[in-house]
């Protein structure tokens, strides 16, 4: 083989080897891309499943709360009204009997209202601002503490799943405040920023040391739930200085 031929072969094989290396690189990139794609899809599916689980859990919790409320209403309100109706209808006096009929009408109205709260359709019909106002009114009626509510209406438009989770997180935050903090005032403020809107729940109760690991998983669950709808949950508290919870949700 002449020198010229061997040099030509060297260049040819060098070129082929180089092209082979490049091809391997590109094919490797495509294979890695496919693998990453599969991983990314699996991760997305997992997030979706977790989100659905959270929603189901939240729906169950709301139904449990509703059943407890209905039980209380049946015992404290409708039960009392039925007893009064029974006594009035057993009376021989016509005015007492017409009173009894009035009680029956009132019972029918109360049962209608209660039956509506048995399914979750009320979540669709009530706005988040209305829900917060209802919860605060309930607290106010108990006389346990003063309440304050300010809103710029940033949460009036929400998807059903977002509304369900927010309702549950707000309910849980208020329950925690009443159960553990014994506040004299609870204030809720709804406002918006450039890229997100937020709900701030403040109380002036006992507060707690956030650095001490809690026994329960309540706060962790609330954080996870907010994350499941793309939101954020922040909590600041100090002993004697009350608690400040912020729920953020992007637009």
């Amino acid at each position: 083989m002449s020198e010229q031929e061997s040099q030509f072969l060297l260049i040819l094989f060098g070129g082929i080897f180089f092209a082979f290396l490049m091809s391997v690189f590109v094919v490797a990139m495509v294979i890695i891309h496919r693998q990453q794609q599969v991983r990314s899809r699996e991760k997305l599916n997992q997030i979706k499943v977790e989100h659905e689980k959270t929603l189901l859990y939240v729906e169950n919790e709301i139904q449990q709360e509703t059943l407890t409320h209905i039980g209380r209403e049946l015992h404290d309100n409708i039960g009392q009204l039925l007893s009064l109706a029974k006594i009035s209808l057993h009376s021989v006096k016509p005015e007492r009997q017409s009173e009894g009929k009035e009680y029956i009408n009132q019972i029918i109205k109360e049962v209608r209202v209660l039956s509506k709260s048995l399914n979750l359709d009320w979540v669709e019909s009530v706005s988040l601002d209305d829900f917060i106002q209802q919860q605060l009114d309930k607290i106010q009626r108990t006389g346990l503490c003063e309440v304050q509510f300010q809103s710029d209406g940033s949460f009036l438009e929400l998807k059903k799943d977002q509304k369900l989770v927010l309702i549950r997180v707000i309910q849980e935050s208020l329950n925690n405040a009443l159960k553990h903090a014994q506040p004299s005032k609870i204030a809720i403020q709804v406002s918006q920023h450039d890229t997100f809107r937020k709900i701030e729940i403040k109380d002036d109760g006992k507060g707690f040391d956030t650095t001490i690991q809690s026994q329960g998983s309540g706060m962790y669950n609330l954080k996870k739930r907010m994350e499941s709808i793309g939101g954020k949950f922040y909590l600041t508290s100090a002993v004697g200085n009350g608690t400040h919870i912020t729920l953020e949700l992007p637009f």
């Binding site: 690189f25 990139m29 495509v30 890695i32 891309h33 990453q36 794609q37 990314s40």
Partner: peptide, 17 residues
């Protein structure tokens, strides 16, 4: 470019071919 192709979510949603 290839680094972005295998790491970025935007590229992971499409078929590179």
């Amino acid at each position: 470019y290839f680094y972005e192709l295998i790491t970025m979510d935007e590229f992971l949603e499409v078929n590179p071919l």
